[in-house]
Lab assay of single mutants.
Amino acid sequence: GKELVLALYDYQEKSPREVTMKKGDILTLLNSTNKDWWKVEVKATANDKTYERQGFVPAAYVKKL
């Protein structure tokens, strides 16, 4: 199945390749080969529509579930 990670801290994206997350968010882990930056998929809701974004977050800010 898919691997999930838990956001340990809030993170505000600093570039278009990154994604914003809030502490407590559960994210889908896409790639953890880089030890510093993990690629995740974030589900977000805006205007009653759910959309998914993929991007990088600092590996130290998340932990595998």
Rank of each mutant, 00 (worst) to 15 (best):
G1F: 13
G1H: 13
G1M: 13
G1E: 12
K2H: 13
K2S: 09
E3W: 12
E3G: 10
E3L: 12
E3I: 15
E3S: 11
E3Q: 14
E3P: 11
E3V: 15
E3D: 10
L4G: 03
L4D: 04
L4E: 07
L4N: 05
V5K: 00
V5Y: 07
L6D: 01
L6E: 09
L6T: 06
A7S: 05
A7H: 01
A7L: 02
A7Q: 00
L8N: 03
L8H: 02
L8F: 03
L8S: 02
L8D: 01
L8M: 09
Y9N: 07
Y9L: 09
D10N: 08
D10E: 05
D10Q: 03
D10T: 05
Y11V: 00
Y11Q: 00
Y11I: 00
Y11N: 00
Y11T: 01
Y11W: 10
Q12V: 14
Q12D: 14
Q12Y: 14
E13G: 15
E13M: 12
E13P: 15
K14Y: 04
K14Q: 13
K14D: 05
K14L: 08
K14C: 12
S15V: 04
S15I: 04
S15C: 10
P16H: 10
P16G: 08
P16E: 11
P16K: 10
P16R: 09
R17E: 11
R17C: 15
R17T: 11
E18M: 05
E18R: 05
E18F: 06
E18C: 04
V19L: 12
V19S: 02
V19Q: 01
T20G: 07
T20A: 06
M21C: 06
M21T: 03
K22S: 08
K22Y: 10
K22L: 07
K22R: 12
K23A: 12
K23Y: 04
K23S: 07
G24A: 02
G24R: 01
G24L: 03
D25I: 03
D25M: 12
D25Q: 14
D25K: 02
D25Y: 04
D25C: 08
I26R: 04
I26A: 02
I26S: 02
I26E: 03
I26V: 12
L27G: 06
L27S: 02
T28M: 10
T28D: 04
L29C: 05
L29P: 00
L29F: 02
L29R: 00
L29K: 00
L29N: 00
L30H: 03
L30M: 06
L30A: 02
L30N: 01
N31L: 08
N31G: 06
N31P: 03
S32V: 06
S32F: 06
S32T: 09
T33H: 10
T33I: 08
N34F: 08
N34Y: 08
N34C: 10
K35F: 08
K35T: 10
K35S: 12
K35G: 08
D36M: 13
D36H: 14
D36Y: 15
D36R: 14
W37Q: 02
W37N: 01
W37P: 02
W38I: 04
W38P: 00
W38S: 01
W38L: 03
W38N: 01
K39M: 15
K39Q: 11
K39D: 03
K39G: 04
K39V: 14
K39L: 15
V40P: 00
V40G: 00
E41D: 05
E41G: 14
V42E: 04
K43H: 14
A44C: 15
A44G: 12
A44R: 12
A44Q: 12
A44V: 15
A44T: 14
T45H: 11
T45E: 11
A46F: 14
A46T: 12
A46D: 13
N47D: 12
N47K: 09
N47M: 11
N47P: 09
N47Y: 11
D48S: 11
D48P: 08
D48L: 09
D48Q: 09
D48H: 10
D48T: 08
K49D: 09
K49T: 11
K49N: 11
K49Q: 13
T50P: 11
T50H: 10
T50R: 09
T50M: 10
T50C: 15
Y51P: 09
Y51G: 10
Y51L: 10
Y51I: 12
E52D: 14
E52R: 15
E52M: 15
E52H: 15
E52G: 14
E52K: 15
R53N: 05
R53K: 11
R53L: 07
Q54D: 05
Q54H: 09
G55Q: 01
F56C: 14
F56D: 03
F56E: 03
F56M: 07
V57R: 01
V57I: 08
V57M: 02
P58Y: 04
P58V: 03
P58D: 02
P58K: 04
P58S: 03
A59C: 06
A59M: 04
A59G: 03
A59L: 04
A59E: 03
A60M: 10
A60C: 14
A60S: 13
Y61K: 06
Y61V: 05
Y61N: 05
Y61A: 10
Y61R: 05
V62R: 01
V62E: 02
V62K: 02
V62D: 01
V62W: 03
V62N: 00
V62T: 03
K63E: 12
K63N: 06
K63R: 13
K63W: 09
K63T: 13
K64M: 11
K64G: 05
K64N: 06
K64E: 06
L65S: 03
L65D: 02
L65V: 11
L65Q: 04
